[in-house]
């Protein structure tokens, strides 16, 4: 917690995907902080407590200096005398957080998040990994099923508003040409990542109608959702030539 808001960071046990969630202080009814605070919490316990709240309830999160627990108070909005309190004990993760250095990315595309979710889902049916290429003309997401030899390909073309789907007969790649409305480009870049983790990242589509994909050669892929209250980022470690 800092004076700007709350930053949440979590990583899967295989260190393949790291999620960073920033919630600005402007998304809270009130936000008070004496000094920066870093807490390590078991995410399932926190989720269990927060799920006890109804959509209209008021949640107050509190932790004191040198606290060992985060206290979550849940209040019914029209019955403020009705309060339930839950403590989520801190855990020791061994380190506070990972420092993610800000790097200049070589290429970025922004696409509709629902299309991105469909792309991830469909390519995951084909293969455990996919190649993402961003070139001057656009972006290409390709997956190959080694067993059957089937290849799936989604192409995002720059400044095109066509939206068509080509089925794969005679081994031609099936592809969707999708309107892509924002992009920056510095140099041609390609990365290979696990489709499973891309599917996971693409499921956050309800947060924002747009999603950005940022790449730099030999660096983790960044999948980013920007929305009014903050930003959600997924860093996915690439698969590299051994």
């Amino acid at each position: 917690c800092s004076k700007e808001g709350i930053m949440l960071q979590g990583m899967d046990e295989f260190h393949i995907s790291l999620v960073e969630f920033f919630l600005s202080k402007r998304s809270f009814e009130s936000y008070a902080l004496c000094h920066d605070l870093c807490m390590s919490l078991p995410i399932d316990s926190l989720a269990t407590v927060l799920k006890k709240a109804n959509d209209d309830d008021v949640c107050t999160l509190k932790a004191g200096h040198k606290a060992k627990v985060l206290t979550v108070a849940i209040e019914t909005r029209d019955q403020p005398w009705l309060v339930s309190k839950h403590d989520v004990p801190f855990i020791d993760l061994g380190s506070e957080y990972l420092v993610i250095s800000r790097i200049p990315y070589d290429a970025k595309i922004t696409v509709w998040s629902t299309r991105f979710a469909r792309l991830a889902h469909e390519l995951h049916q084909l293969s455990g990994s996919l190649d993402i290429q961003i070139i001057h003309e656009g972006a290409r997401f390709t997956a190959l099923d080694e067993g059957s030899g089937k290849k799936g390909c989604f192409i995002f073309r720059r400044a095109k508003v066509v939206d068509e789907y080509r089925d794969s007969e005679d081994d031609e790649p099936a592809g969707a040409i999708i309107h892509e409305f924002h992009r920056y480009f510095h140099k041609a870049t390609s990365l290979r990542v696990s489709t499973k983790y891309l599917v996971h990242a693409s499921k956050r589509a309800p947060l924002s109608s747009k999603v950005s994909v940022l790449m730099k050669e030999d660096q983790p892929l960044l999948v980013q959702y920007d929305f009014y209250e903050g930003v959600l980022k997924f860093y996915i470690a690439p698969r590299i030539a051994d």
Binding site: H15, I16, S17, Y97, L98, R239, I240
Partner: peptide, 14 residues
């Protein structure tokens, strides 16, 4: 051969 890289190769714990 393609290997899955580890995020800890890129980012260091504080």
């Amino acid at each position: 051969l393609v290997a899955q890289s580890d995020l800890l190769d890129y980012y260091k714990p504080k």
